[in-house]
Design a protein around this nucleic acid. Structure first.
Lengths: 347, 347
DNA sequence: ACTCACCGGGAAAGCGCTATCTCACTACGG
DNA sequence: CCGTAGTGAGATAGCGCTTTCCCGGTGAGT
């Protein structure tokens, strides 16, 4: 033996054929006993097959089943960034729901690049997943949008189901996050707390989520008599938040009472920037975010934000795709303003 | 039309056969042109095939390829909890590296249940993935360990590759996280800062990661003359950290200067508990964690911890499984103590 | 007693691919 | 001018399954 003596000899996995032979039945009977079928199978035969399968440690080849059945048990999930709590929470919801349905989730990250996203959709289509869930945020007017939409249409016409999270791109099913209303409600509440002069730190123009939240916030301010004095648009990430806030401080906060960040990770970054500039978030300048990711309870002061039940969003996205069109719950996800100490009552 | 008029008629996806017919070549030639092969194909034919494929929006059926080739392009990843930053960071690394290798990642969550983990491995085996990466933490003496190991052995003997993260279970390849040395180094540094009286808040006994970190920490303290006065073992999660810390405070901190949390999410929870008890973390009681997840920079005070390059760990786990056994980098991952303000120098 | 559904096992035809094998055709050395 | 060694396209045999389809055997109905 020149090989590693410990290494077990490589053997091919047991096939259904092996199981059938071991049990002394036909391939058909083995298939019927193991992987459900409308047809009944003699209990004794069935037991023999089950025993043989256990003995051979048989595990059905999902690819082969997919080919034979013409359908898979796969869900494809596209997110912008797996490490971002916004997406990972949502992914957790998708995975959990998929698990309940005995579906397998394949996951890919667009890294916020629409080119990549398009590529991924094309690749993933090869899997013939039952469902594709697109959670990476849409970009208004992106040159790849049409191609993406075409690709998804093709996928649908082949019997696949598509679900978006956030605002629908075109006519696809989507779990509606009411970014606009949430931000508007937040603005009203903040006005109620006595704030009047605001700045916003949010993602680049064109990122739909960022735009909607900003628009909603603005609308809320206008209704309540607040003013949005400054807007900076760094990356839609924690570091973006830090950077944007730093810029705001360097240019002079003069009179700005509260900074609205486009999402919680940005808000958290902004709070660090505030602190690093020698100021105290909440006291010297208030901060509010959006999403209610878990960590915002643990920063100091705890962050005021708009709660999105992210896990539920993930679960609903899958349900949306799986359920019969008429059984689908298309109502927008409930969002809720959560006031915490990062926005103390003024005066 | 009683159906939704907008809905495109459902058509089966184009098959290679369709492409071949469209291009006026044989199936074999179409296959060779589209999906690489050692054999050359007349350039004119090749172009015809490519054009036909584009026209029909052909996308090769990966399941069929898998069946025909006898191998897939799939990587299966098992984590305890997708929403936990420790795992999601790692997952991001795996996905990124997989993408480089043009592999597809399927992801599942054990929810810290070894029974579930075993089930998932069994199910995932049906996919015939090239690689299985197990990142959910091991439990010493768990009744399911043997079955899991057997399952993985079987998988390996069928040509699959297995990679663990954290300490190897049995004889499998593993990305070694040096929890023990990291915790020991942390303890020494803390002693160096003037701390002497410690408590630990960590996961249940048997969770290998928790045990190793605790053992390392203890060793470091002993070497340096510190004492570990109390140990509580709640869940290995943020809420566990909160709960454990609360318990510690309720029972009376008397003299404990620093609390070592088994991981960063616990540490973050613990800090919130401290604050909720009316104390100030860092000032009234210092806190240290382990992992260096991104958020610990943004809590107040920033958390002292032991840095693990989680993304790199994910990437390396995949490489470990993919590379030739002799080309594999089995050196333990570099960990590094990061001192921040949650553990100010004493006196 | 005889037809006639039904029941349930087995043979075999696919599913969409890949890879081996066959074979016509070209080019070239002797 | 023949034999021979490439070349490269096409036919086809699988890959591991599911699902017809076929068929002998049973029990019920008349």
């Amino acid at each position: 033996m020149t090989d590693d003596a410990v290494e077990t000899r490589r053997t091919a996995p047991a096939t259904l054929h092996d199981v059938a032979r071991e049990a002394g039945v036909s391939l058909a009977t083995a298939s019927r006993s193991l992987n459900g079928s409308t047809r009944k199978v003699n209990e004794e035969y069935r037991q023999r097959v089950l025993a043989a399968a256990a003995k051979l440690n048989y595990s059905p080849n999902l690819s082969a089943q997919a080919v034979a059945r013409g359908s898979t048990t796969t869900v494809a999930l596209l997110v912008a960034d797996i490490a971002d709590p916004y997406f990972s929470q949502m992914a957790a919801g998708v995975v959990r729901e998929a698990d309940r349905e005995r579906l397998i989730v394949t996951m890919a990250a667009t890294e916020r690049d629409t080119e990549r996203e398009l590529d991924l959709v094309r690749t993933l289509r090869g899997q013939r997943p039952r469902v594709m869930i697109l959670a990476a945020s849409r970009r208004e007017g992106d040159p790849n949008n049409d191609a993406l939409e075409a690709e998804l249409r093709a996928f649908e016409s082949n019997g696949g189901r598509v679900a978006f999270v956030s605002s629908a791109a075109g006519e696809f099913h989507a779990v509606q996050l009411d970014n606009r209303a949430g931000a508007e409600a937040l603005a009203r509440e903040l006005i109620g707390l006595g704030y009047r002069r605001f700045a916003a730190v949010t993602g680049a123009e064109g990122i739909r989520t960022a735009d909607e939240r900003l628009a909603g916030f603005r609308a809320g301010l206008e209704a309540g008599g607040g003013t949005l004095e400054r807007i900076v648009r760094p990356a839609f990430t924690r570091d973006g938040g830090y950077e944007g806030m730093t810029q705001l401080i360097e240019e002079g906060l003069d009179g700005i009472e509260l900074v609205f960040a486009g999402n919680d990770v940005m808000a958290v970054g902004a709070m660090s920037a505030i602190r690093d500039a020698g100021l105290t978030p909440g006291t010297d300048v208030a901060v509010a975010g959006f999403d209610d990711i878990p960590t915002v309870r643990d920063v100091t002061p705890p962050l005021t934000t708009v709660r999105i039940p992210l896990e539920e969003v993930g679960r609903r996205a899958l349900r949306l795709a799986l359920d019969e069109p008429d059984a689908v719950d298309e109502s927008p996800v409930h969002t809720e303003v959560v006031l915490r100490e990062s926005t103390p009552r003024r005066g």
